[in-house]
Write a protein that binds this DNA or RNA. Structure first.
Lengths: 300, 300
DNA sequence: GGCGATGATCATACAAACCGATCATTTCCA
DNA sequence: TGGAAATGATCGGTTTGTATGATCATCGCC
């Protein structure tokens, strides 16, 4: 007997007949004719190598055979899985399901909250998973979308979300002018993020200008950088959005740099076809970024 | 998007391509051509309402899409179930699997042991389940085979296994002759099984002959009946096989009755098509019964 | 003995599967 | 820069399978 030559439609027929008792009623329920069901069962019996129903003849209903019971048991498993698949597919198309997003602090704190709120208001049961994996060469593996401060690998799809101006955050007494010349940072005690990604680029650019700050503390936490500046430990060069809600006050001052460093460019990366949910997240993110830019939040 | 119009073969293609990476290798593995797999995936994509693979073009391999992942997850469930079904079907045809048998004490103790031994020697993993349900009108529901002391309902299939002579079991001092006239049992203290099935027929037949024994103890346990006779509590009329290995000794004597009561006829009943395992059990039971009969074990 | 329900069977129209050949695209290498 | 190699898509044609409606055989029941 040959292996697994049966079709889902045959198994549905088996189930319907076993449930309804007769070929005719099962055919009605499935929207077929009795003739079709007879042939489907015949095909199934060819596939499994023996009869699945006893047909006593006359008005007596069909009775399932031991072989039929064996097949039926598995058939119901498969039909249930098919149903579940259909539901998941429908949910997928409706914009539900799951989306895995790579992000980083600024995006998580500034951009994503309204995006997530909008998604969850449309699809309360959608499964949004955020992963913060700030490494030098991040990967898209296992992610549907990834926010990144650069255009990423050339074979990826991308959209540029915003340009985030680099500003100087300094203890209040340190600088007066609203614009500070970059070379005044040479030798100055400085707080920094770990030297990867944007922070690395900033330091490289300063070095190209002959400026070598003296890093006295590094932390991966944007807010902690600002707090240390606030404590007077040193100053910091940060993308404006990374400063959070910090603005010039009685402890810190924010300054533009002269010459201005190239801004941090935030991209959203993905690869190939997106799920409707992920596409919606992308579109909402683009809109949110446009709002941020036009509201002036990315420029001092 | 339409519901569950996909076929197992499409899901197998999906799985193979997701595993192998390219349509061509997957086609080779499945024994199809690349063209066929392209068309199968196209059909699947029509069924699920969207692409399941991104085809980057050129020598780059196909990559599964989010929708493809959703489908693939369920596909693997269904394919695993199909595999399991195939294995169960193969086991079924080879004579393995499960069989549910209704039996009763005599059959369990005398007939079945060698039958079960033979079955389990052929198929060590076969699942033989015995149910002792000694009621007046037993049912075949949930059973593949049923041993019964009568021909059963007319719409059942049956085979007559053996005729088991009714004998008198008496305390040693009670009767001398090897044949005892039935009417000598009138008023005699007697041990009996519950008055159903064969026991009921025996009592009816005695009553028809004007014989009314005095039942002083009833138990459903054949061996307990003999034990009570051995204790001198009374005598008993039993089918010979129900006496187990009891024979005339220094405590009990076995006697033929005059006139002989009709023997207990043991049938094996079933309905419709049997599984190979059940058919084998039936055939072995017929052979075992023939052995019992020809060895004289059913006649004193 | 006829009625009604059951499932099987047949002929036919239609759809789908599969294959072989071919094509378009892209990468890689010389 | 041009061509070889590998990818998947597409097309035409044959085969296979599917669904239908009509008809037939069987059997229980009134």
């Amino acid at each position: 007997m040959i292996i697994a030559m049966f079709e889902l439609r045959h198994l549905a027929a088996l189930d319907a007949i076993a449930t309804e008792g007769t070929f005719g009623r099962a055919a009605t329920r499935l929207g077929y004719t009795q003739s079709t069901l007879s042939q489907q069962i015949a095909a199934l019996e060819r596939a499994v190598g023996g009869p699945v129903f006893d047909r006593p003849g006359g008005p007596r209903p069909a009775r399932i055979t031991p072989l039929g019971r064996v097949v039926l048991e598995h058939a119901r498993t498969m039909l249930a899985a098919a149903d579940a698949a259909g539901e998941d597919i429908a949910r997928f198309h409706a914009g539900g399901g799951r989306v895995d997003v790579g992000t980083f602090q600024t995006v998580t704190n500034v951009l994503l909250p309204p995006v997530v709120a909008a998604l969850r208001s449309d699809h309360p049961d959608c499964d949004i998973r955020l992963v913060e994996d700030e490494t030098e060469t991040p990967t898209l593996a296992g992610l549907d979308l990834m926010f990144f401060d650069g255009p990423g690998a050339p074979d990826l799809d991308r959209v540029r979300l915003l340009a985030d101006e680099h500003v100087l955050v300094a203890p209040r007494a340190m600088f007066r002018a609203s614009r500070v010349a970059v070379d005044r940072l040479d030798g100055v005690p400085m707080i920094g993020l770990p030297p990867i990604c944007d922070q690395r680029r900033v330091e490289d650019q300063l070095a190209d200008l002959g400026v070598r700050p003296r890093f006295v503390f590094r932390t991966a936490d944007n807010q902690a950088v600002v707090s240390m500046v606030r404590g007077g430990l040193g100053c910091a060069v940060l993308p404006l959005l990374a400063t959070g809600s910090a603005r010039s006050d009685d402890q810190v001052t924010l300054h533009r740099l002269r010459p201005a460093l190239p801004p941090r460019e935030v991209y959203l990366l993905w690869q190939g076809t997106l799920s409707p949910l992920a596409a919606r997240l992308r579109d909402l993110s683009v809109a949110a970024a446009r709002d941020l830019t036009s509201s002036g939040a990315c420029r001092l």
